[in-house]
Design a protein around this nucleic acid. Structure first.
Lengths: 190, 190
DNA sequence: GTCTATACATTGATAGAC
DNA sequence: GTCTATCAATGTATAGAC
């Protein structure tokens, strides 16, 4: 037993550089997507060597996996109307400060099978929860459409930067989408 | 002047192989995206050599440009209600038989600046036409949201293959989205 | 016109020095 | 623990033979 209050240079130092590498990876993956991101670029941004990154994470795939792993955000269920509003607030949160990890997945989604799987895995519990709250036979399709809308808006705002979408305030976007979400979460009035 | 009815092996033969290469390129770009698509794979799929592809198109970028160039589909304008319905029919058409060129652009959009520009260029006239038909100050934002929804649905159906979205019939999707589109194209009833 | 051979750069990954 | 040196593979692009 060495003194417990001493600075543990070993594991602590490693953990710090590991976090630094992960932060750099998240940012670059989000900017360039999976394919265009190189180990060298990540290492350089983190101020370390490329070999060290490999030494820590084993491969580019594993680095990507570690960089984008994120606890699925909680989405409270409830009645159909409540779910619609919860989805809107969730969207609002993601429209104000979107974590780099989600953007990395979004951008890599279409070119990396791993990213696509991650996206699906993250979306599935959300989809199920939404599905349960919608009292129609086509609830699963409605939930999928809601998911598609959310991700379409985020993608075109953050990744594609369509001007009008990028400039608008989250509140404005949410207000415009509210009728959409309500119509999708409630059965036809017929 | 050689006999006009003879088979012009020169230009005609070239044109045929060029078209074969372009068809192969469209398909592979749509499947793999810009980055993962290699000249070699395109050449192989077209039954020719990689050098020939370079000889014809000059570079990978130019090949991509030629492969995905497509006349912007006409979107008739009109009143806000008519535009909503026109958008839905347009979406329905793209949900039944989507040309490979559009999918190639969609998949490459997030990783290739060229593809992103092409996407914007193709979307802009549509956006303007929609904007003009909506009689509200935030018409441009509404148009952008409509665009985001359309592309979100297409991306998750064709590229990500979310099961419920991939299995649903175009009519079912359109019917569910109709209220959304109407609420976005018409001013608040207030 | 079409294909072969190859130059040149870049990348992911490995082994070993400090 | 961190970095240098290097390997092997891949991909774009070029030059030239047939």
């Amino acid at each position: 037993m060495t003194e417990p209050s001493a600075r543990p240079t070993r594991a602590q130092q490693r953990h710090r550089t590991e976090e630094r590498i992960l932060a750099a990876a998240r940012q670059i993956f989000a900017e360039l997507g999976y394919d265009r991101t190189t180990i060298r670029a990540v290492a350089s941004a983190a101020g370390v060597d490329a070999g060290l990154v490999m030494h820590y994470f084993g491969s580019k795939d594993l680095l990507f996996a570690r960089a984008v792993e994120v606890p699925a955000d909680e989405l409270p269920g409830g009645t159909s109307g409540e779910v619609a509003e919860a989805l809107l607030t969730s969207l609002g949160r993601r429209l104000t400060s979107e974590p780099a990890a989600s953007l990395a997945v979004l951008r890599s989604m279409l070119t990396n099978a791993d990213a696509a799987d991650r996206y699906r895995a993250a979306a599935e519990p959300q989809l199920n929860q939404i599905t349960e709250a919608i009292p129609t036979p086509d609830a699963d399709l409605r939930a999928s459409l809601l998911s598609a809308i959310v991700h379409g808006v985020i993608a075109e705002r953050y990744l594609l930067r369509l001007t009008h979408l990028a400039d608008a305030s989250p509140e404005q976007i949410i207000d415009l989408l509210r009728p959409c979400f309500q119509s999708l979460t409630t059965p036809p009035s017929k």
